[in-house]
Structures are given as structure tokens and as C-alpha cells.
């Protein structure tokens, strides 16, 4: 098994923005997939925690666009609010 996952498999990028794809994948899979209420579901607090860490990482490394983190978190909170 490969240790480091390859970037988005089928999704191609026209004008590459580098790291953003991985963040987009996490954002999508974690935040926008259909919630089925499985036997084992993610506590909302856990999802929030991931976003907090995501933003920390982005601030520290500055490897995506500045303020992308705020953007992601704003979207995340929005979506959460709408779901309720």
C-alpha cells in the first residue's frame, strides 16, 4: 500500500493550484456527502475540530491561498446552519 496517497485521481485540473485539490477533497467528502446516520457517525464536534486544524495548517504553511481557511470555515458553518 502506498504511504502517500496520490492526488485527486480522476479529477483533472486545468490550471493547477497545487494543494487546493487535497483540501477540496477533504472539504467535499467530509462536509458535503450525503449523511445517512450510520451506526457510527461523526460527531459534529469532530468535524468542527478538523476544520479548526485545517485552518491552523493553512496559516502555518501558507501553502494554499491566504485566507482560504476562512473561506472553507465560512462555507462549512453555513452548510451546517442550513442543515439544521
Amino acid at each position: 500500500m502506498a504511504r502517500t496517497p496520490s492526488r485527486t485521481p480522476a479529477s483533472q485540473v486545468l490550471d493547477d493550484e497545487g494543494e487546493t485539490s487535497l483540501l477540496d477533497v477533504i472539504d467535499n467528502a467530509l462536509n458535503k456527502g450525503i449523511v445517512l446516520n450510520g451506526d457510527l457517525t461523526l460527531a459534529l464536534a469532530q468535524v468542527d475540530l478538523v476544520y479548526a486544524r485545517l485552518s491552523l495548517l493553512l496559516c502555518a504553511a501558507d501553502r494554499v491561498m491566504p485566507n482560504e481557511d476562512d473561506d472553507i470555515i465560512a462555507r462549512h458553518s453555513d452548510r451546517r446552519a442550513r442543515r439544521r
Binding site: 445517512l36 450510520g38 457517525t41
Partner: peptide, 9 residues
């Protein structure tokens, strides 16, 4: 329809 990450039964 993609499921949310870590949907387990």
C-alpha cells in the same frame, strides 16, 4: 450519491 466520509454500519 457520495456518502459523507466515515459512514459506517
Amino acid at each position: 450519491l457520495p456518502m459523507q466520509l466515515f459512514t459506517l454500519f
